[in-house]
Amino acid sequence: MIVDRKPLNFWEKLYLPAIIGGLKVTLKHAYATLIQRKVVTMEYPEQKWTLPTGYRGAPYLVKDQDNNTKCVSCQLCEFVCPPKAIRITPPGDTGAKADRTNAEKMPAEFEINMLRCIFCGFCQEVCPEEAIFLQQNYSLIGLSRKEMIYDKEKLLSLGGEVGGIQKWKLKLEEAKAQENFPVKV
């Protein structure tokens, strides 16, 4: 394709209009930044952006309302984890019993290697006990690789508390919905 270019007139050939235009634009921007303080930069550690709901940050383990570990060491997340970042050590026969009453066991050790984690959210999706959630933290810092492998205590303390087991409520709603469907005549 041949682009039709208008020949420059004498005034334009002097480059002067372009130079003056450039001076004006740059001065305007410098004025806006220096005097009016209209800066586009967000100075990160002091200012942080608001994360959208459903943001997939680092996965942490959560506790229930009675401060018990929710995880039952089913190892589904370990199995589903694409980069194999999760490693669960089950309690075995001799290990500690579960914190809460209606659970069989809890993990002896639960490690997430945050250097491997890709924040995909499969662990949260697959967890039957709603024990692991991708939370809002995206800034994970450590001085060594070892430090970046988060163990059970760390994950639990970072994860906080998500009370109530919602899955039975959801199941109940599902069951009720199924009972009412197809509509009885």
Partner: peptide
């Protein structure tokens, strides 16, 4: 610094 000001940034600080 001047480039930052012209480009609406803050520059090294």
């Amino acid at each position: 610094k001047i480039s930052a000001w012209i480009q609406d940034r803050v520059g090294p600080n």
